[in-house]
Nucleic acid binder design. Sequence first.
DNA 1: CTGAAAGCGCTAACAT
DNA 2: ATGTTAGCGCTTTCAG
Lengths: 345, 345
Amino acid sequence: MAIKRITITELAKELNTTPSTVSRALRGHECISREMRDKVNDLAIKRNYTVNRLASSLRSGSSKTLGIIVPRVNRDFFSNCISGIEEVAAKAGYTSIICQTHDEQEKEEKSVLSLIESNVAGILISTWSDSSQSPAFIEANRLGIPVIFFDRATKDINQNKVVVDDNLGAYEGVKHLIEQGYKRIVHFAGPQHIKIYNDRKEGYLKALREFNIPIDKNLIVENPLSKDIGYDAILPFLKGPKKADALFSASDYAALGAIIRIKEMGISIPDEMGIVGFSNEMFTSIIDPPMTTIDQHSKRIGNYAVQACLEAIKEENPVFKNIVLSPTLIIRESSLKKPLRIINK
Amino acid sequence: MAIKRITITELAKELNTTPSTVSRALRGHECISREMRDKVNDLAIKRNYTVNRLASSLRSGSSKTLGIIVPRVNRDFFSNCISGIEEVAAKAGYTSIICQTHDEQEKEEKSVLSLIESNVAGILISTWSDSSQSPAFIEANRLGIPVIFFDRATKDINQNKVVVDDNLGAYEGVKHLIEQGYKRIVHFAGPQHIKIYNDRKEGYLKALREFNIPIDKNLIVENPLSKDIGYDAILPFLKGPKKADALFSASDYAALGAIIRIKEMGISIPDEMGIVGFSNEMFTSIIDPPMTTIDQHSKRIGNYAVQACLEAIKEENPVFKNIVLSPTLIIRESSLKKPLRIINK
DNA sequence: CTGAAAGCGCTAACAT
DNA sequence: ATGTTAGCGCTTTCAG
């Protein structure tokens, strides 16, 4: 049943010409006569010719494939980044391979190597690790494959990054809580070896300091951020000596878990407990009450990242780019102790 | 800066042997001595050798890449399917390329062709079109590239499918509404050329017939399903002559839009209006009220689909498989007019 | 404007 | 157990 695919050699034979000419004609080379170009293209369509990208890339030494590595695709934030990347990539004729790491460093390493094996022209990654000095990255570097870090970048200087000003985002979120009159603000901080979470914690601390609110380390919870963990982690702060009156979570999902618990306990949001999340996941706008959160312009992160990548592929001399976007605080009911008009003053 | 990658030829030279031996050693061929195998593997690691999959696939004529085509990745349903696929694929040593069609037929065609160009070993697709007879599918067929349809399959017989019994799922959902005492049930039906939506409508009709509820065509809305459209589409049914008392939506997103509108209008769910969605998207469990919906075992769909694909890749004679999973009704508050204990009787 | 020839890196007969 | 040879399908000098 399986029929072997048509090759340019066969097209050439049928037209009494050579593979070189066919190849050039198909790629629209200037130096081929109109007549020949048309003849070749017509036959190619007639015979259902499809280029063999393996052979093409192998020979030319350049592929039109990008690699994308994210923790998981089922987060609005990441799937929007991916859309942003593919949008631009497709226009430039690039395909992309998407890998998920599920936040496991080993899978990340493997993904990078696998992409190298697949001869990708560039790699776009939201990394788990705190350093770009892992063997896989070094290897990509050695081979001249540009690596663009987006969202989660490392602290290293010499790399291409497209990130959000997480510090600023967190600062704005916490400042908003303080202005609303909240005083004891819990912070779900996330693993601190990941730079974005460290930055968000710094933003949280900065806001507290600025408003002379004493920093209580007991209010800071550092752990992986998920709905289930948030559900458990908020408990100690709902009554007793550690009782708090607000939560700033570095993740919408952890904040969601907390909200579920808080509602179960019959505690009122935002009156007794204010909530601010991070990422503007789709669900934050539809839950009850709608959650204040910080939008990271995910799609645009993708746009910028792939632009930087395509440029890096073209350029021979590596000039590292560091693009920082400002996040946007989205104020919703979960943090509105005061009526909205006072805020908008 | 860019260093050319190490090849087996270079490894061979350094070890005073031949590329064939190195190639065989790296792949763990039996007929290579332990000693040689170790020597080769050690050097490969030392020199950061990575296989060039382009060359390997080109030569051997078989690639270890699967293509996945879905409407979009930022739906829990699809991203879970993808996880289910990758889980099994990775174990078998396969990588996957993910394409999004955004529900545009042209993009779907292009994606299939692009995957063919990339020499994928198989294609897993949740299709938009109503037929597997488009040029791209015919071409894949001709080339002996197995195509597995999952979730959204076409009506054609001769193809590999992994689907959910959408008819049954819809039937169960509507039956549940009827048993709860709802009588005028709106149906958001989705584009009927897509088989799953057609099946869901049939299930809806079947349940009505079975309980002798008159079928009112005015209650059936056929259009693309999204949150925004649901928000608008429910309006005519909230008061006036067309007033209804329940909604069965073929999509959770459209149901969500309806819920937002219904709450805005101050109409009570589930007392005045019962809601059942479809897909068990993550948000359905956390909105207020939690939404009754139908779970499609998305991850398992992915598992089965990729298994079928891997088998099809191995087998020479194509035996078409048609795997049907039973969906599960998940009852939540949005449809519970009667207290729960009565249902559980 | 077109053709001839070489080779990208790898694998698989076929030999030894 | 290893080496020899050829070639996957394409692109790219170099030569007309």
